[in-house]
Simulated scan of single mutants.
Amino acid sequence: MARFHPLPVAAVDRLTDDSVALTFTVPAELREEFRHAPGQHLALRRRTDGTEIRRTYSICSPAPAPGGDGPSTLRVGVRLVEGGAFSTYALKEVNLGDEIEVMTPAGRFTLDPAPGLYAAVVGGSGITPVLSIVSTLLAREPRARFCLIRGDRTAASTMFLEEVADLKDRYPERLQLVTVLSREEQQAGLPSGRLDRERLAELLPALLPVDQVAGWFLCGPFGLVEGAEKALRGLGVEKSRIHQEIFHVDSAVPAEAAPAPADSTVTARLDGRGGTWPVRDGESLLETVLRNRPDAPYACKGGVCGTCRAFLVSGEVRMDRNFALEAEETEAGYVLACQSHAVTEKVELDFDR
């Protein structure tokens, strides 16, 4: 069960004018709880003026080896979002020694290190989880190779520029690095421009044997991830080999749908305990559960992070949108509680599966 713990800030490193890396110290007694797979994320929580703010940020540090100790530190990357309450706080107010409430790791945008060729297409802050994936894979598996294709606006706006360069120096034969800048010409390398579907459809086969890549990792804004997936599907890549994590989705008003049945209820199992509660008109199932179980897991409430994933035991729900669950997860019966609304009078969810 995901839980929050206050962790002290061990370092605040300025990456670019609009991004920082926060490093947290993990005390010995919590290191097992904060053991993470490469690519997972942390939800950070702050309470201000009586309001609780939660935001999710990917871990960029390598994952601990199986069987060894859990991590003594955790590092995340934060990019400033216009009007963003938490990102503004992270960039302008957080200092060394401050304590921030941090949820234990979550997320399924991960790679279990194994031999083979892997590749990623990332945009902007989408480099953050992939940095953890690449560094962990190449350190643990000498028979693995990785092709990293990243798009940024300018060199000055590129997060983790030095960290990626260090990885390239450390593994020159096993890490292929391709950088494309959309607003700045490079002295060498590819011409400037966006990494859209058409460009990727031409670029990817020229860079590597697309059909031999064991896993593709797409991360960043919705447009880039969507375009990269369509390009890969057009090149014959099976959907099961494409993994996605979206960082930015434009807000959209969901299409009107039939209201929930009158007197509908949700039964939820959470951390070994269950309960049944009435669903108020218009609220999501997560909102219903939170009114009665404030410890229910969530972060973004926008269908992006997947923290509120639950198994649909019985009943039917309507999800407004889903940018977090893979097709096999929804087919297996998982839903995002923050986006789910009751279609039947009785719905049962299990957050523990």
Rank of each mutant, 00 (worst) to 15 (best):
E184L: 05
E185R: 11
Q186H: 04
A188Y: 02
L190T: 05
S192C: 12
S192K: 15
D196L: 03
D196Q: 03
D196C: 05
R199Y: 12
L200W: 10
E202K: 10
E202C: 02
P205A: 10
L207S: 09
L207G: 12
L207V: 09
P209T: 13
D211Y: 01
V213D: 08
G215A: 12
G215N: 04
W216V: 06
F217C: 07
G220K: 06
G220C: 09
G220Y: 06
F222G: 02
G223V: 05
L224K: 06
A228S: 11
G234H: 01
G234Y: 03
G236D: 02
V237Q: 03
K239E: 14
S240T: 15
Q244H: 01
E245V: 03
D250H: 14
V253C: 03
A255L: 15
A257V: 15
A257G: 11
A260Q: 05
D263Y: 00
T265N: 01
V266F: 01
R269N: 02
R269H: 09
R269C: 08
L270A: 09
L270T: 04
R273L: 06
V279I: 15
V279K: 02
D281H: 12
G282D: 08
S284Q: 08
L286H: 07
V289R: 10
D295F: 01
D295T: 08
A299T: 10
K301A: 10
G302I: 02
G303R: 10
V304K: 02
G306I: 05
T307G: 00
C308I: 13
R309L: 06
G315P: 06
G315D: 05
E316M: 00
